[in-house]
Design a protein around this nucleic acid. Structure first.
Lengths: 198, 198
DNA sequence: ACCTGAACACCGTTCAAGT
DNA sequence: ACCTGAACACCGTTCAAGT
């Protein structure tokens, strides 16, 4: 019998549960999937699951923050020269793709956040960080002459994020419409916001 | 004993229940409010409630469609001359105000729609109608020279609606931020989309 | 015809007992 | 230290019985 427990176990278990949850949410949506289903998928008992997550909402929160973190990381690769618009469009595509299979999850996350101050605060902090990075990129682009400076960088960033999320939200309704169409529309919007001269 | 039932009763009951539901949702959010709470507020029994609505989701659906219908009606009053931008801004303010007290409801409606094909279809039909009206307004404005024609009217309409809903969504996270700030940001976006020359 | 409210079904969460 | 799974609590929905 080991005196010390496996220090990697908690992280492994959390990953195991999150993977199972994503799989289930994808199949039946957040509302309809049961803790028992997640447990079956993760080959674990309810009691064990609650050792690693406080609640079902806590599981969505973890997934939401993870997705956000990935999106934010992609921002660092954004060029601030004349490739800016295309970079933003690529980012939008990645964002839409992240929610392609679990389209409903996007809406569920926001609904959960709206009713759960803890998740709201965590998501809010991530969101602020994301917006600040995007603002910085736009600011540099304006200085470099790659973006039109009539719009305050912070306003442009907020508008772009709102539009991106708005398109993602609307895509949950029109599941038939393909991603490229959404990307094209978002790209057009970004172009008008950042380079109105062209 | 009357041979014919009061023909206005069903509509009255539905209104009574919807008012009660709105009140409850405002206070505790969609998730947390209980059918029993709505019943208490409406002074009616659960059995009676289910005579007028199929499910809890059906109640949100009714509220969602009602809110949408109001927003759509406001579109008719939109000027297609140089007051267009201000008209759109006023519309955005009304939209934000409609969800001011039940901020979480906005996200809940989408989450519900994402998981409920019936609601999705109903909301989708309304949405299409709204977009077509907005498209027509923009088209007229472009012809009148009040909007810049570089953007296809349908794309502009879709972008504006996505942005409007994106801002509304994000407002559920930042409850502190006042409406005027959101309206100002949306107005700026609309300006860049429709009148990039200025 | 419309309503009541107890009963049912389901599911998120807990906890006493195991190894 | 970690896990199991039966039990609990809660709530959306139904339905037999009332008027």
């Amino acid at each position: 019998m080991p005196r010390l427990a496996d220090p990697a176990l908690p992280e492994r278990r959390r990953g195991q549960i999150l993977d199972a949850a994503r799989e289930c949410f994808r199949e039946r949506g957040f509302r309809l999937t049961t803790i028992e289903e997640i447990c079956a998928q993760a080959r674990i008992s309810p009691g064990a699951l609650y050792r690693y997550f406080d609640s079902k909402a806590d599981i969505v929160a973890a997934i939401a923050l993870d997705t956000r973190a990935q999106a934010e990381a992609a921002l660092d690769a954004l060029p601030d020269d004349h490739g800016l618009i295309d970079g933003i469009a690529a980012l939008a595509r990645a964002f839409f793709e992240a929610f392609e299979q679990d389209a409903t999850l996007f809406a569920d996350i926001w609904a959960e956040a709206a009713g759960d101050p803890v998740l709201a605060k965590a998501l809010g902090a991530r969101d602020r960080a994301t917006r600040e990075r995007l603002t910085a990129v736009i600011e540099r682009a304006q200085r470099a002459g790659a973006a039109y400076p009539s719009l305050a960088p912070a306003d442009a960033a907020e508008a772009l994020m709102a539009a991106l999320e708005g398109f993602a939200l609307r895509r949950t309704l029109w599941k038939d419409r393909d991603i490229s169409e959404a990307v094209r529309r978002f790209r057009t919007l970004a172009l008008h916001l950042l380079k109105p001269k062209r």
